[in-house]
């Protein structure tokens, strides 16, 4: 496997692409923290009998080819759609092939990576503790922040880290929705593809190696945390 090449020519890492990627991953994680916690709370605590319908939709990005998802998102936010036209009227330019469009797409694409660990953590919280909190006069909202969230902290961090890592490496959806605009929508994975197409294996190898190392350490962190290697919070 080619990890590292040394030739003449443009063999520098594309820091602009790395910057775009990290910004996209961080913002996606942030959006998913808010959105994902809400959806996961509903999935875990709702007694609606048809909630599996919503669960299946949330899990769709796990099985759909990124191009299929990307295609639908592109159509949905394009200038011919209602959403696309509304956004264009509001902001002055359309969503596809912009950073915001990319953020929207990658939020959808990484949704299950955040929601599933969140919901699994909420499912683990003993319902009797929640009831005890209610009888102590705490509203559902206060109970969430004072009790449920601290008890689910491992799952929440796992979800955030996984969506961050997943966004770092996404390719198909980015290509479909974001295009390949330097400094705007060209992410690391697309940059690597471009370099390989241009037969610049050295540049591709450096960036690929960077992505490999970052991804590995992110996953290392998640697994170590779930095994409780460091007892940084009280074990239950």
């Amino acid at each position: 496997m080619v990890l590292w090449f040394r030739t003449n020519g443009n063999d520098q890492m594309n820091w602009i692409a790395i910057g775009v990627t990290v910004k996209l991953a961080a913002l996606t994680s942030l959006v998913l923290l808010v959105l994902g916690l809400g959806i996961a709370y509903w999935l875990s605590f709702s007694r609606w009998r048809w909630k599996f319908l919503v669960e299946s939709i949330v899990a769709l990005p796990l099985v759909l080819p990124p191009t299929v998802l990307g295609f639908y998102i592109l159509v949905a936010i394009g200038p011919h759609s209602l959403v696309g036209r509304f956004y264009a009227d509001l902001v002055g330019h359309s969503l596809p092939f912009t950073f915001e469009g990319l953020l929207f797409a990658s939020t959808l694409y990484s949704l299950p990576f955040a929601v599933q660990p969140f919901a699994a953590a909420f499912d683990q919280v003993d319902r009797r503790l929640i009831e005890a909190s209610w009888t102590l006069g705490q509203s559902k909202c206060k109970t969430f922040f004072k009790l449920i969230l601290p008890l689910s902290v491992t799952g929440v961090i796992t979800g955030i880290v996984l969506s961050f890592a997943h966004t770092l490496g996404e390719f198909g959806v980015v290509l479909m929705v974001g295009g390949n605009i330097e400094g705007e929508t060209r992410t690391v994975s697309i940059d690597i593809y471009d370099e390989v197409q241009a037969l610049n294996y050295t540049g591709a190898a450096k960036t690929a190696f960077f992505l490999l190392v970052v991804s590995y350490f992110v996953l290392l962190g998640v697994y170590a945390m779930n095994r409780k290697v460091w007892a940084v919070w009280p074990q239950r």
């Binding site: 003993d126 009797r128 503790l129 009831e131 005890a132 909190s133 009888t135 102590l136 009790l147 601290p150 008890l151 919070w233 009280p234 239950r236």
Partner: peptide
């Protein structure tokens, strides 16, 4: 003031 059977003390 409600005290359930297994006390339901908050572990955190």
């Amino acid at each position: 003031g409600y005290m359930p059977q297994d006390y339901a003390l908050f572990p955190t």
